[in-house]
Design a protein around this nucleic acid. Structure first.
Lengths: 113, 113
DNA sequence: TCGAAATATCGGGATCTTACGATATAATTA
DNA sequence: TAATTATATCGTAAGATCCCGATATTTCGA
């Protein structure tokens, strides 16, 4: 999973955007985001904090699946979590997610909204 | 792969960003983008057109693998391709990719650049 | 302390992805 | 036509992902 190859810079594109390590990291994060339930969770969490159960209900999945999705996103540093009594509230830790979701909504959102 | 479920809108988040179909579509596209070689190809192609062989060399993969990656991205409508003699030149078809890559570079690019 | 509620983890089976070698197709040149 | 170059496709095996049921863990209330 940790693709840590050292790559020579090709001929036509010197210093073109991200280096290979950054690309591998970015790919990991995109893969983590690339699931409808997880996208939905991010979308919801950008508007405030939610418990696991609430997210599960919104996404219509079992709560232990929500837990799993949240674990994956937390591993990428996307989320915060705070326990309050029996509940655990999740929130957004990665500020860039807002821009990214805006890009995605710009591409996939219906024009009439 | 075609997750076409009809989902009820939950309680706390009415009309929150994208609906389920759009999320599934977005997830597909993100998954397609979520590979270091494919990200690199998009990065390169945003600066001009490239042949399969050039892309393969830049990404240090075999050209038949480049071909495969390009096929996946074309299936999402990301790319254009034009044959010229023996070569096939690929380019960017989806204008939103530029914004998306900027978001990604904003997150993963080194601060000093 | 016991039971219930909320969340997390484990083990497994089905499905998908990835990269490979081999092969096929298309266009060019000898 | 035959050989060469560029690109695409096929079959496949290893590995990853997804979702499930079952089971743990943590916290609260009776």
């Amino acid at each position: 999973m940790a693709t840590t190859k050292t790559r020579a810079v090709g001929s036509r594109a010197r210093r073109h955007g991200l280096d290979w390590d950054a690309l591998a990291q970015a790919a990991e994060c995109l893969k983590t985001l690339a699931h409808p339930a997880r996208l939905r969770m991010v979308q919801l969490l950008l508007s405030g904090r939610y418990t696991v159960g609430e997210l599960a209900e919104e996404c219509e999945i079992q709560s232990h699946m929500a837990s799993e999705h949240l674990r994956l996103m937390q591993r990428c540093g996307f989320l915060t979590s705070v326990r309050e009594g029996r509940n655990i509230f999740y929130g957004i830790a990665e500020p860039h997610l807002e821009n990214l979701m805006r890009c995605i909504e710009g591409r996939f959102g219906r024009p009439g909204r």
